[in-house]
Design a protein around this nucleic acid. Sequence first.
DNA 1: TATAATCCCGACCGAATAGGTTGGGTATTG
DNA 2: CAATACCCAACCTATTCGGTCGGGATTATA
Lengths: 140, 140
Amino acid sequence: MRLTTRGRYAVTAMLDLAMHGGEGPVCLNEIARRRDISPAYLERLFRNLRRRGLVCSTRGAHGGYQLCRCAGEISVAEVIAAVDESLDATACDGDCGGLTHDLWEELTQHVRRFLETKTLAELCEARQREDAARELREEA
Amino acid sequence: MRLTTRGRYAVTAMLDLAMHGGEGPVCLNEIARRRDISPAYLERLFRNLRRRGLVCSTRGAHGGYQLCRCAGEISVAEVIAAVDESLDATACDGDCGGLTHDLWEELTQHVRRFLETKTLAELCEARQREDAARELREEA
DNA sequence: TATAATCCCGACCGAATAGGTTGGGTATTG
DNA sequence: CAATACCCAACCTATTCGGTCGGGATTATA
């Protein structure tokens, strides 16, 4: 199992899309600028996201990307899987005769369940609540 | 966060040590043979385990390694940390201004807690129960 | 119709690191 | 002294991560 900036970038970008995708497609350059991610690299990631059916694209000027499903129906696990990060802690291909096989299996299940139940919508809301709270504090 | 064979090897070897360490030290060649791990590589891992105070060594003929503490007081998390695998999913050094920072933080906590509460003794027992059950089945 | 914006795609690259090896030590037992 | 074992630094190879490059194809707009 590995969790690198790749999955993080993907989730961040998808979240950005969920937040700014109200009307019309959002272009990658915008996301890249807002989130400070290399545009070319982001493009590579979106290639995968599109192929997995998580986003759809509009080409040409004023084009960009949109979520294919509503944010409540896209899990973080899916996004990470799309950019090809394995969420498998065992990695011993079936029966490795291992003393510890069950342990890694259990751990993998834990992580997987956690990420499968988190949706983009949830993260979006959490963020908005946070922002609201901060504004309130700053007014006071 | 990454979880590779390194941590797996370390935990497996420590478990082996917990199971066979009843009387006197156990030498690496034995463990390597039993668990099918490269002896030289295992040695490298044990260097770290020793430096972290998880095992102590006896040099010379009939030498080997022993657990420094009893198996119930060594957590899987410690073993993995000893061989230098980071259990951090965030890896964004403090405030990365990230939309998703909280998510990774939460995930890291989950994983960490899981591995911190698993001790070698527990895994040992689980294994022994398993073996007993299998024997029973085979007798029938 | 030209041009700019945008997605699309394969190929490449440097650095890090995982897993592993080699070749030398040093200590202890018999 | 020889065999067994720990100790250690340096090296090797393959993978992959984050990222770039150079070129398409498609669409909106001036």
